[in-house]
Amino acid sequence: MSEVLVLVDHVDGAVRKTTSEMLTAAARLGEPAAVFVGAGLDAARETLAAYGATKIYVVDSSDVTDYLVAPTAEVLASLCEKVSPAAVLLPSTTTGKEIAGRLAIKTSAGVVTDAIDIEPVDGGIQSKQSVFAGNYTVTAKIVKGAPIITVKPNSIAPLESAATPTEETVEVSVSDAAKASSIVSTEPKAASGRPSLTEAAIVVSGGRGTGGDFGPVEGFADALGAAVGASRAAVDAGWYPHSSQVGQTGVSVSPQLYVAAGISGAIQHRAGMQTSKAIVAINKDEEAPIFEMVDFGVVGDLFTVLPAATAKINES
């Protein structure tokens, strides 16, 4: 069986959930082989084994980690040449997509981004994507090369499947051209203690209706162990950082439960949350379009409804 390369999504060895989702998808297509770039493998090894990686390619060279995406694309391209994988899976992050784009050109292979499902079919691999603000599901097949697929977080349920991976250190020689862009500095964000937006099972978002006070939204989110998001209106007003923006020009999420507080539900926002399993909205305006798509809605002031709900949840 051919290997399926999975680019491990991690921060200094802390493996993100997307990785176990990708390993699960990879097992449907062949032998999952993790590609671990950077430092921290000791922290990651156990998770990679638990989710079925039969092999771990280790790339720990400052030539790769200091220079963004181009060197990683070079490493993956050389691995593709060496092992002729059945497919290459990457996380649907900004970086993951950029590596995918470069890799596609290098290996002359087709690319699909934001896959929500992957399955083998006769003569290839099929993937599904959600497009046009989540109004359509597109099934695509890659017809050239080893398919390069970026996988949308929270789309494929991870399955544990213990394996004993072998490890292979990959020697890299990164071209000078690939070093033409570099990270000058990194300012880590203050940790909120909340789960990451794309991985969270529950997301609570606030919009214009918060008037800039996200207190009730954050309190409710914390009672549910949820991530906090924001609409474009709230971000444009400077009330919440852009990295928390849910919507067409921000992050797209598909949690088990999405709560929209003080968000009218413009298409810009719906594009980023329409594929959530359950949707709840709280809005003063009973005509708000968001109510057309909710499983449960409360017409009311979020400043009274959310604290009351939070209190009741915290009591129980």
Binding site: V138, I142, V143, G145, V294, G297, V298, V299, V305
Partner: peptide, 22 residues
């Protein structure tokens, strides 16, 4: 094209669930 769309399916519209007034 190196990737080809084999099917497009319109997502069933979400139906409105329960709406309560506070």
């Amino acid at each position: 094209a190196w990737s080809t769309v084999v099917n497009v399916e319109q997502r069933p519209p979400r139906s409105q669930g329960t709406i309560v007034t506070d």
